[in-house]
């Protein structure tokens, strides 16, 4: 499968990526457009006569919030994986009584509208006095990902051969050790997949941030967008600029993570 001419594949890959990212390019284009040109007919395909007004605003006002977003994103990933992976291992391999029902509940749990979830959290957090705190927001954001994570982990872990688990058992490993030193290392792919999406959800979350952290000193970057949405008027170049600035560090993180994963997989293949 890998024997085809690779440059041809790369070319096709670049074209497909370009098509996929065209809307992102358009967002960048709008972020650089003056308000007098925003609804020009026909539109400029490139930022002719660009304005950096949006970026000046964002860079002077929003940068500290990137750190908050990063902490929230990573915290959510850790919490989600810690909760979901053991449960998925049990569902896939230990088959607890009621496991099917649990998968089912996880599925249904995701159907509860976000705004209703946020309202529930508001009531709970208010009484606990943890509104407007980062740990509170991490826990809330994790609800976006935990059911997903358990289901995905279960799907992947059910592919792990039972012989491997039995072998560990014969070697005298308990369930926890089997999980830590056999199951988790094999499941690296799914851990990365789950972590990626968990991070992305936490990074781009709006609804929990605005309900649970609107008064906090440390707000995620998405809330920075609100600064440009007045009650009568929206500053689109600044809104788009915020989104661009907010996505650059995370995009770098994504590319690096993917490279790391790809490298790891190849290393494993060589060892074969």
């Amino acid at each position: 499968m890998t024997s085809r001419r690779p440059w041809w594949n790369t070319l096709l890959g670049v074209v497909l990526t370009a098509i996929m990212l065209f809307p992102v390019y358009w967002m960048v284009n709008v972020s650089l457009t003056k308000s007098t040109d925003m609804r020009r007919n026909p539109p400029f395909l490139f930022p002719v006569d660009p304005t950096f007004e949006g970026y000046t605003k964002v860079l002077t006002q929003q940068l500290p919030y990137l750190g908050t977003s990063l902490i929230i994103g990573l915290g959510t990933v850790v919490l989600t994986v810690a909760l979901a992976a053991p449960a998925a291992f049990a569902l896939a391999k230990l088959r607890p009584i009621g496991g099917g029902a649990l998968s089912f509940v996880l599925l249904i749990a995701q159907m509860i509208p976000g705004i209703i979830m946020a309202m529930g959290f508001y009531a709970i957090y208010l009484n606990l006095g943890i509104l407007d705190t980062i740990p509170g927001l991490i826990v809330a954001d994790s609800t976006l990902a935990v059911p997903f994570a358990v289901l995905i982990f279960t799907a992947f872990m059910s592919g792990i051969p039972n012989e491997l688990i039995s072998a560990a058992k014969i070697d005298g490993a308990g369930a926890w050790r089997t999980f830590r030193s056999v199951v988790m290392p094999i499941s690296r792919n799914s851990v990365v997949t789950v972590s990626l999406f968990t991070f992305l959800w936490a990074w781009s979350d709006f609804i929990f941030a605005s309900t649970l952290d609107s008064g906090g000193d440390l707000q995620p970057i998405t809330m920075g967008i609100y600064r440009y949405i007045g009650n009568n008027n929206q500053e689109w170049n600044a809104i788009m600029a915020t989104a661009v600035v907010a996505s650059i560090p995370a995009a770098v993180l994504l590319v690096v993570a993917q490279r790391y994963v790809a490298a790891g997989v190849t290393a494993g293949a060589v060892k074969d």
């Binding site: 890998t2 992102v24 709006f206």
Partner: peptide, 30 residues
Amino acid sequence: FFFRRFPLSATLRALFLVPWLLPLLVSAST
């Protein structure tokens, strides 16, 4: 397609996720 592992495949695949970094407010508005 990306499973063929050609030069740049990992990077391009990672770039496919960029739309997910944007809040829906922004991507839908775009």
